[in-house]
Design a protein around this nucleic acid. Structure first.
Lengths: 224, 224
DNA sequence: CGCGGCTTTGATGTTCATCAAGTAAAGTGG
DNA sequence: CCACTTTACTTGATGAACATCAAAGCCGCG
């Protein structure tokens, strides 16, 4: 398989200081895997043997708890999927599954480890990238936590608008999953969406969302 | 200043594969700083020029938001204080201040960067350690979020019991700070502590807490 | 066609924030 | 050291935000 991905983080990180042999090894240690919607990419509790990167599509990171499923983060293209604690732990503490048909790049984790050990520039850029990624997840969570129902739902709708780069899109997740993402009951999530519809801030046809009054939605997000 | 700290993470990380010159450089680039209770160690918004490590004492990581202060995590000895995004960002996105008189070890961030670039084994162990640390913060937050008032307060009381290694201790933080840590109102935090006292699960004299029925407190944490 | 899961709305009760008001404790200036 | 101010703490009362329960419609799938 050729290394033809323009925007690949790993490759760009690697390019900074790479010998031809290293690039060869990088290319041959990589495999692409296509996963269908709803397919599981990483299973909570499974041993960590791979380092995974989302080339295309959309995924959710979540974990099962005694109180039910909890969605930790939505993964966009060019995000690491092996986001948290890949090197610090033996087993995954969360699951990842595809929201759309997606393509992931898979490396043997020992290959990445080797690269870290042998190539300091790669190690440094990887630290930087992983730092940024886990920071984003944590602060997103901290932000959501300060908001109430309306603010949380507005934040989710705007986040997908930003990810999908459109004010009119098909929701990649169910109402129930929104409730698992914002940590509130499904009934109240639905009620909130209905209220936003009744106030003509959004239009809703099933899974299709159209943001009508973006400024008001942003206000609701920021003031609630 | 000598490198005499038995348990120092950085040093232990470094020992794995260290030349005498490297250890020398490590020692000379380190400075110890003693901070008083309530003194600020890191200020949100300040440029990141140092890499900081908590040798002794207790600190809080927090950030200021439009909705008020929010405590992100409590830092114990041997924790990194420069926990999140030290390499990924230009400025600190949170503050750190001392809850007790504390001792921190300070490195020039460029020295740490150099070590990463030049010593792969150091880089790998640092990644591992940072991964674990940010994981702990995130999952602690995810856990707290699934609990209600009683469970959250019980979790905080038990966490300090574990950190201070005793069932009878002086609370290192105020009631208000507990409320900023668990994300609930100060009045309800106080009410909850009072209720636990009335049920004879804990004894309270001002800042002094004595856990009487630890098993029940653990139950309250886990079932609420 | 019928079953199970997802969605929706209404009704009800719980959990929690907020307001109010007072006490205790800790810092401040004379 | 004392009067003064501020900050932390505490309890009660009220209403808002939210979860839960109930019932019904919808949709996909075997």
């Amino acid at each position: 398989m050729k290394c033809d991905c323009e925007n690949c983080h790993i490759k760009n990180i690697f390019y900074a200081s790479v010998t031809p042999e290293e690039l060869d090894r990088y290319c041959s240690s990589r495999t692409e895997r296509i996963v269908d919607e709803k397919e599981t990419i990483i299973r909570q509790g499974a041993p960590i043997t791979e380092f995974i990167y989302l080339k295309e599509g959309l995924v959710k990171l979540y974990r099962n708890t005694p109180a039910g499923a909890q969605i930790i983060s939505i993964g966009k293209p060019l995000d690491f999927v092996s986001l948290l604690n890949v090197f610090g732990d033996e087993k995954y503490s969360y699951s990842v599954s595809a929201l759309h048909k997606s393509t992931v790049c898979v490396f043997d984790i020992n290959e990445i480890k080797k690269m870290i050990l042998e190539n300091g520039a790669f190690a440094f850029k990887l630290i930087k990238t992983m730092n940024k990624a886990s920071d984003r997840v944590l602060f997103n969570y901290l932000d959501i936590n300060q908001k109430r129902l309306f603010g949380r739902v507005a934040a989710v709708l705007l986040e997908f608008s930003s990810i999908l780069n459109s004010d009119s899109y098909e929701l990649p997740i169910s109402r129930k999953e929104i409730s698992q993402l914002v940590g509130m009951s499904i009934e109240n999530v639905i009620r909130t969406i209905s209220d936003l519809r009744k106030d003509k801030i959004i239009k809703v046809y099933g899974k299709n969302i159209e943001i009508i009054e973006k400024q008001r939605l942003i206000q609701i997000r920021d003031l609630n």
